[in-house]
């Protein structure tokens, strides 16, 4: 059975209690992107600065549950200093980790994802090498209703970067 310790790993609680890169950058020059979860009213506001194709700074605002806040905090630590291509790659790996096949959920989720990643989608294996601390969020897939919490910030960042690229 999936236990709370699978969801609330210590590193997640640490990011929740001590969020990294919290705040807001002045726009412009920074770019702004927002994400909403209409189910629970959670909201994430990202502001980020770019130099060429590198995200040089990023701040996380808004409010939400421990999972959405910790995931956005960990994301901010992971993407600052990275290029757009690297961030898109990381985002793909993270979302692959967060994607589940119906058959892997199984009833109350008891058989799914025991930590070895056997129930996960194949694409996450090499992604896992680079996800680092973000691996701690793997347990979220055992609690399907919380996946949207974990991906809230990532979706907002992907949208923000796409819009920035499109705007030239």
């Amino acid at each position: 059975m999936a236990g709370l310790e699978d969801l609330y790993r210590e590193i997640i609680l640490d990011h929740y209690r001590n969020p990294r890169n919290r705040g807001e950058l002045e726009c412009p020059p920074a770019h702004r992107s927002e994400g909403f979860n209409p189910l629970c009213g959670d909201e994430v506001v990202l502001t980020f600065e770019m130099d060429g194709d590198v995200v040089t700074d990023l701040r996380v605002g808004g409010y939400g549950c421990s999972i959405s806040q910790a995931s956005a905090s960990m994301m901010s630590a992971a993407v600052i200093g990275k290029t757009i291509d690297e961030i898109r790659d990381l985002t793909r790996s993270f979302k692959a980790m967060m994607s589940i096949h119906e058959e892997s959920i199984g009833g109350d989720g008891s058989e799914a994802l025991d930590g070895s990643g056997t129930g996960d989608s194949g694409s996450s294996t090499d992604g896992a090498l680079r996800l680092g601390d973000l691996e701690a969020l793997r347990g979220v897939v055992k609690f399907p209703v919380r996946i949207k919490c974990a991906t809230l910030g990532w979706n907002a960042l992907a949208t923000g970067i796409d819009e920035t690229v499109a705007a030239g």
């Binding site: 709370l4 629970c40 959670d42 549950c65 421990s66 919380r146 919490c149």
Partner: peptide
């Protein structure tokens, strides 16, 4: 504590 987190813990 966020309501989502409360309800998750209570569910256990």
């Amino acid at each position: 504590v966020h309501p989502h987190d409360i309800s998750q813990v209570l569910d256990q």
